[in-house]
């Protein structure tokens, strides 16, 4: 059994509850144990680091320190949380003064940020730790006959100086996972593009245009569904799909799955169990 500290992203506790729920179904099947960090706090989204760089460092040093206390790596299932926490980690590791200032405060809670735990995405754990062969061996309901559009999103790829797992111009980890589960990936130009989430509330029209472009390509490529490793991308591509497509005058729709759901399906769990029925498009 491989153990990890599991970071609970805000969105997975509110709008996309199905992510954590589906992981709970299959984690043991793949020899994984995720220990939920109930003490963890919001990572600050992509905003806190410029609103207040020091609070940003404190909050995320603490999130990582909680995992370090257990001697575990921190696993994240939201792209932006991943990018944000890794950005903070990079800054802390490169700036001894900041690290010291933060640790002086963390002492109050008996915590210390040392920089010993890695911060990794659920997708990377599946592909790199569990391994594609193991996953293949565990599949009971292969996703064959499905044409799947892999949508990586931004913050699992960029900035590459912070993420570094995949080639940001030609990512492959999600494609590999899909294929290990028996699915067929389609060439998808928008695979490493943006979903528009982060401007939804500030520049909605622009955001939806961005989303519509990706949806349109998937629809035109006759994909059966889109799969994404990020609940924020999912929220736009699924939740805002009808609005985005309407704005772009496209009369069609396409389901969007989380990777956790796709893994669950291939391992034999039902759509109902996994919470897929909660999607707006399904």
């Amino acid at each position: 059994m491989k153990r990890y500290a599991y970071y609970m992203s805000c969105i997975n506790e509110s709008m996309t509850k199905e992510v954590d729920r589906s992981i709970d179904f299959w984690q043991k099947d793949l020899g994984l144990e995720f220990v939920k960090l109930h003490e963890g706090t919001c990572c600050g989204g992509s905003n806190l680091d410029y609103v207040s760089p020091k609070h940003f460092a404190l909050v995320n040093a603490r999130n990582i320190a909680l995992a370090e206390k257990m001697g575990l790596d921190l696993v994240v299932s939201c792209n932006t949380c991943l990018m944000t926490i890794r950005t903070a980690k990079k800054k802390l590791d490169e700036t001894p003064a900041l690290k010291k200032e933060v640790n002086d405060i963390l002492k109050k809670e008996g915590l210390e940020y040392r920089g010993t735990s890695e911060v990794r995405h659920l997708l990377w754990v599946l592909v790199d730790d569990v391994g594609l062969d193991t996953i293949k061996a565990k599949v009971t309901v292969p996703l064959k006959n499905y044409r799947i559009a892999p949508f990586y999103g931004c913050h699992i790829l960029r900035p590459s100086t912070v993420l570094g797992r995949d080639n940001p111009l030609a990512p492959s980890s999600l494609d590999q996972l899909i294929e290990a589960l028996g699915g067929q990936t389609i060439p998808f130009e928008h695979k490493n593009r943006c979903c528009g989430f982060h401007t939804l509330l500030v520049a909605e029209e622009e955001s939806l245009n961005v989303a519509a472009e990706a949806l349109e390509e998937a629809i035109n490529s006759k994909a059966d569904f889109i799969v994404t490793p990020c609940p924020l991308c999912h929220t736009v591509l699924d939740g805002y799909q009808s609005k985005a497509l309407k704005q772009a005058h496209i009369d069609s729709s396409i389901p969007v799955f989380h990777i956790s759901e796709m893994v669950g399906l291939a391992l034999g769990y039902t759509a109902k169990q996994l919470g897929i029925k909660r999607h707006i498009v399904c």
Partner: peptide, 15 residues
Amino acid sequence: DHGVWDCTHCYRCQE
């Protein structure tokens, strides 16, 4: 409008 707050943090520019 159409200024600095409209950026969606996709990091494509930087990349």
